[in-house]
Design a binder for these strands. Structure first.
Lengths: 252, 252
DNA sequence: CGCTACGTTGATCGCACTCAAGTATAGTGG
DNA sequence: CCACTATACTTGAGTGCGATCAACGTAGCG
């Protein structure tokens, strides 16, 4: 089945089967913080989860809503967004299968500070926040894994603060491309394709700039032979030089 | 003893006694995540800690060093900084007594991503990272409190990312002043003094701008009657208008 | 009293935003 | 298969916010 596609990005369609009850167990086993549990324990945990699927662009929850659930990505990708009063959205993170989001700290009466939106077609598992809290009490090793991952996310977010405070748009875009390639890179013929639909808007929202500026930088990078790009996709062809830019700005 | 001072900020000198062994126990009791422990348990935990004091400007640890310890602020204030290759520093957080920093997630072989620096004279308690990890395993309720606080910090840091991505320098400075006033505000005669040494450099490093821009904004705010300010101190005189500038929904 | 660090203010420059018009691509239905 | 449409993307011209460079004022401290 080698149909001629323009985009090299695999848009995995989430069939109903992917989101079925039967496969939930195998998905939960892959979740980092349940990895420490035995098969029997996961079986018990599994009963607490419900599954839902969303189409690209659909909101899983909105910022401001009562934070009542913890979610786990089973398949597809989920965007975490913060909104500004001015109307601009900031893309905080793109979550992969196995990643959790929503209400994961045992705080009562909180609201979601961000909006979770399906980036591709997704299947998510959800558990009541209180039930998750009980679970953390029951399995301390799980709580430590959750702490571990949350601490890592904090450090990564602090690094983004540093970049926004001190780096140029070009540096930030180079950095985000390298980070995405690290996470989703698909190597073939010396080039690294970022395996996700990635528009100029996405890129702009991730780096605190405008679509136009993101477009200009991306075009420039391509002209310089650092990347190859098309509609909704980017592949890195010269990682070393891109790393140099991300670290030390060439100035223009 | 009302001596005439130019700065209204109380520069609390940390006497040797403040950092003595005898007072450690009472300090640990005030640490949020040990609050759940009994007096006996705290006594045991206490033996694992050592105390150190630092003068303003001294580094407690440098970024890049092996992350071997968890620290708790006992007295004074600690700055968390990230450095850029360009030489600019970003001020991520100003920690208060009871706040923890350093290596608090049970990751092995990590390095500090930031530098911890004494902002005022400080006394800190430290514990070996592995010993702290053991402690978290021993007292799951403590681990949940740590997770709770870490998750809150993550949300706060994400909010800073949003601000840096979408807000103007003026908005960001207004927001940081309100946040500091919330945390350290000392009310007297309708005005709220931020109880910490706060220079234009600090303000600039917190909001991703330059000293000159920070100075211009602060001068402007004073001219408009929103704040009163002097060398190393700022007091808020018109919170409502400042909130409007910051873009916070007052809800009324 | 100087010295030093902090702070202010002015002039100028440039990066990135804004506004605007246009091109290319994927998907859709005839 | 091709026209048609919607969406993604590009590119240009002009502007402005905030950085940079520079000089000076001011508070605190020994």
């Amino acid at each position: 089945m080698t149909t001629r596609r323009k985009t090299p990005v695999q848009v995995e369609t989430v069939e109903p089967a992917t989101c079925s009850v039967g496969l939930r167990l195998s998905i939960l086993q892959k979740v980092p913080f349940f990895h420490v549990l035995t098969a029997d324990e996961i079986g018990i945990v599994n009963e607490q989860f419900r599954e839902f699927s969303f189409q690209p662009g659909e909101a899983i929850y909105f910022s401001g809503e009562q934070a009542a659930k913890l979610y786990v990505v089973a398949a597809g990708q989920v965007k975490l967004l913060r909104h500004s009063l001015s109307g601009q959205d900031v893309l905080l993170d793109v979550l992969q299968p196995g990643d959790y989001f929503g209400s994961f700290s045992p705080l009562a009466d909180e609201r979601y500070p961000d909006t979770a939106q399906a980036h591709t077609a997704v299947c998510v598992l959800s558990i009541n926040a209180k039930a998750f809290h009980t679970l953390l009490n029951q399995y301390p090793s799980v709580a430590l894994r959750v702490l571990d991952i949350t601490a890592r996310r904090l450090r990564e977010t602090q690094e983004i603060v540093r970049q926004l405070s001190t780096d140029s748009v070009g540096q930030r875009i180079a950095a985000v491309l390298l980070k995405l390639a690290e996470k989703l890179g698909e190597v073939s013929n010396e080039i690294v394709l970022i395996q996700m639909p990635l528009s100029r808007v996405d890129l702009a929202q991730m780096t605190g700039t405008t679509t136009e500026s993101a477009s200009r930088i991306v075009s420039q990078f391509q002209k310089e032979g650092l990347i190859r790009t098309g509609r909704q996709w980017i592949a890195i062809t010269d990682r070393t030089r891109l790393e140099k830019i991300a670290g030390i700005d060439t100035g223009g």
